[in-house]
Measured scan of single mutants.
Amino acid sequence: AVSDRLIGRKGVVMEAISPQNSGLVKVDGETWRATSGTVLDVGEEVSVKAIEGVKLVVEKLE
């Protein structure tokens, strides 16, 4: 699937994400809805860990 190529890629949070609410991330110039187990603020760099349906699962870049 086209989304599989995104796993491991870096992105930037465009709309804040929390465990309760999905947000938006931009990866390779495309905007995706994303979820995370932690709070991520706009502008934070993330990496794509998995894909669930049409949402990316991301975590903060260390």
Rank of each mutant, 00 (worst) to 15 (best):
T35E: 13
K55H: 15
V48C: 03
L24V: 10
V12A: 06
L6S: 02
S36Q: 01
D4G: 06
E15D: 08
K60L: 08
V42C: 05
G43P: 04
S36W: 02
V13I: 08
L61C: 05
K10E: 12
E62M: 13
R33W: 13
D41I: 10
E52D: 15
R33L: 14
Q20K: 08
P19Q: 07
K55Y: 14
L24T: 08
E44N: 09
E62W: 12
T31N: 10
L40D: 01
V27K: 01
S3L: 14
V12G: 02
T31L: 15
K26H: 09
L24H: 07
R33F: 14
S3F: 10
E30Y: 13
K10I: 15
T31K: 12
I17N: 02
E15P: 00
G43W: 07
S47K: 11
K55E: 11
E30D: 11
E59G: 09
V25D: 00
S47A: 11
T38C: 05
V2N: 11
I7Y: 04
T35H: 06
K60D: 03
G8Y: 03
E59Y: 11
V42T: 07
A1R: 02
V27M: 05
V12P: 02
V39C: 05
S36C: 05
Q20M: 10
A16E: 09
V12K: 08
G29H: 14
V58H: 00
V42G: 04
Q20N: 09
V39K: 13
D4K: 04
S36N: 02
R5F: 06
L6Q: 03
E59P: 00
V58C: 04
E52N: 11
V54G: 15
G53N: 13
E59N: 06
A16N: 09
E59D: 09
K60N: 04
E45R: 09
N21W: 11
A50F: 06
R5P: 06
E45A: 11
A50V: 04
S3T: 14
D4M: 05
I7K: 04
T35L: 14
K26T: 13
V25L: 02
P19F: 07
E59K: 05
G8T: 03
K10R: 11
R9Q: 12
V12W: 12
S22I: 12
V27T: 03
L56D: 01
I51V: 10
G29F: 07
G53C: 04
V2F: 04
T38K: 10
L6F: 07
L40F: 08
N21Y: 12
N21F: 14
G37E: 10
V27C: 04
V13L: 03
D41W: 10
M14R: 06
A1G: 11
E52M: 09
D28A: 14
E45M: 14
L56Y: 03
L61I: 11
V27S: 02
V2S: 10
K26G: 07
S47R: 15
K60W: 04
L24E: 06
I7S: 03
A50N: 07
V54Y: 13
T38M: 14
G11N: 01
G29S: 10
D41Y: 15
I7Q: 03
T38F: 11
E45W: 10
W32Y: 11
A50L: 04
V57E: 04
G23A: 02
G29K: 15
S3E: 10
D41N: 09
G8R: 03
P19N: 05
T38E: 13
R9W: 09
L24D: 03
T38H: 13
P19K: 09
A1Y: 05
V13D: 00
V25C: 05
I7L: 10
V27Y: 02
R9L: 13
K26R: 13
S22N: 13
A1P: 12
A16S: 13
V48H: 00
R5M: 13
V46H: 01
L6W: 06
T35V: 13
V57L: 09
V46K: 00
S22C: 05
L56C: 04
V57N: 04
G43T: 06
V25K: 00
R5L: 14
G37W: 05
R9A: 08
E44I: 13
G11Q: 00
G23N: 01
D41M: 14
V57W: 10
K49F: 06
K49T: 11
V48M: 02
D28W: 06
K60F: 04
V46E: 00
G53Q: 04
V46C: 05
K55C: 06
S22A: 11
Q20G: 14
S47I: 13
K49G: 04
L61D: 09
I17P: 02
L6A: 03
V13G: 00
T38R: 15
V48S: 01
V54H: 15
T38G: 15
K26W: 08
L40I: 15
I7E: 03
V57T: 05
V13S: 02
L61P: 05
G23M: 03
K10G: 07
S47Y: 12
L6R: 03
V13E: 01
L61R: 06
K55D: 10
V48E: 01
V25I: 07
G43V: 02
R5H: 13
V42H: 06
R33K: 15
K49M: 07
N21P: 02
Q20P: 12
L56H: 01
T31C: 05
G8H: 04
E30N: 10
L6N: 03
V27L: 08
A50M: 07
E45V: 15
L61M: 10
T35R: 09
G29R: 09
E30M: 14
D41G: 13
K10L: 10
G8E: 03
V12Y: 12
K60M: 05
G23K: 01
G37C: 05
V13F: 00
K10H: 09
T35I: 12
R33P: 15
L6G: 02
S18Y: 14
E59A: 13
T35M: 10
V54D: 15
A16F: 13
D41S: 13
G37M: 09
E62K: 08
V54Q: 10
T35P: 00
L61S: 12
D4Q: 07
L40S: 02
L24F: 09
V42L: 07
S36G: 06
V48I: 12
N21G: 14
M14K: 09
V46Q: 00
I51A: 05
E15K: 13
K10V: 14
K10A: 09
P19D: 05
V2K: 03
Q20C: 06
G29D: 10
A16L: 08
L61K: 07
E15S: 08
E44Q: 15
V58S: 00
R5T: 13
E62V: 12
K60Q: 06
L24W: 15
L6K: 03
M14N: 04
G53K: 04
E30C: 06
G8F: 03
